[in-house]
């Protein structure tokens, strides 16, 4: 039981927290702008690398470098929107999807250019895990889980209590009606990018802290993030957060040795769990657990 908590449940929650932060942004973008943002993963990698540069360059802790990561992803998202997505706002969602794929490649190329293809790690001391009654957990994993929960809580306040959040929900409910009701749609779109960029920067730093930094790190988790967003009902930020946690847990638990020491699923196939969940969701409940917009 303890082994399950230590080696499956806690890593699953950590991975789930990262998926959740990424999926919330995807879901918000889909809700407000109606397209699948394929550059999200590479935006995440950008945030992680900028945080790495800030923490090594300035000698600050990784946690203190998160604002630097956000300071890179916010303008990157806004510039991509102004240069590419804004011009395609009235075209088909597929066209926007392809253009975001192009942005993804550009971002990744920039990362290769400045940081090279070799995996890097955040400077962090090797510390023994904290032990509570046999439950062993790395301090950084506690912070990742708490940090993601805090982000989700702040987002909840923003969406439910502020006029800007209400305007965002109105736009995701009926964009044309929102526009004619005098909602400042351009401002809502900018706000959406800012929120998604902050969340994905945090996710990138967390992912880098949990594992290591590679130029394809974000792209590798993009599919799982989409699966999480769709599982939770796309366009529903809460569903996305929930879907992220479920997916993280599912991936980690898929290797649990249920059959006398033999893992349920070979670890090599772990990343296939996201595909399975995605396909199962689309077949059985395409609107997602919380009735999304498809």
């Amino acid at each position: 039981m303890l082994a399950f908590v230590n080696f499956y449940l806690i890593p699953g929650l950590v991975l789930g927290a990262i998926y959740a932060l990424s999926a919330i942004g995807l879901s918000l973008i889909y809700g407000v702008m109606r397209f699948a943002h394929f550059a999200h993963g590479d935006l995440m990698a950008l945030g992680a690398y900028v945080a790495l540069a800030a923490s090594t360059g300035l000698g600050i802790s990784v946690w203190a470098s998160i604002p630097f990561a956000a300071a890179a992803t916010i303008p990157a998202a806004l510039v991509a929107d102004a240069l590419f997505y804004a011009r395609l706002r009235r075209s088909l969602p597929a066209v926007l999807l392809i253009s975001s794929f192009g942005v993804a490649l550009m971002l990744r190329a920039l990362i290769y250019l400045f940081f090279g293809p070799t995996p890097l790690t955040f400077p962090r001391p090797i510390v023994p895990p904290l032990v509570f009654e046999g439950v062993r957990i790395q301090a950084r994993h506690i912070w990742i889980i708490l940090g993601a929960a805090l982000c989700a809580f702040i987002l909840h306040l923003l969406l439910s209590r502020t006029r800007a959040g209400r305007a965002m929900r109105a736009m995701s409910d009926d964009p044309d009606l929102a526009r004619i009701s005098g909602v400042a749609t351009a401002a809502v779109i900018r706000l959406t990018w800012v929120i998604a960029a902050v969340l994905v920067a945090v996710a990138g730093v967390f992912l880098g802290l949990d594992t290591q930094l590679q130029p394809v790190m974000g792209f590798n988790v993009l599919l799982a993030s989409f699966a999480a967003a769709i599982l939770g009902g796309i366009g529903r930020p809460w569903g996305a957060a929930f879907g992220g946690v479920i997916l993280g847990l599912a991936e980690e638990c898929s290797t649990y040795p249920l059959r006398d020491g033999a893992p349920l699923l070979e670890p090599t196939y772990k990343s296939a769990v996201a595909f399975v969940v995605l396909i199962a969701t689309l077949l059985l409940r395409p609107q997602g657990l919380f009735r999304g917009m498809i």
Partner: peptide
């Protein structure tokens, strides 16, 4: 009803 009111400062970007 609330969303239909004319713009106020809360809808602008940094304000929240």
């Amino acid at each position: 009803l609330m969303v239909a009111a004319p713009n106020q400062s809360g809808e602008r970007l940094p304000a929240p």
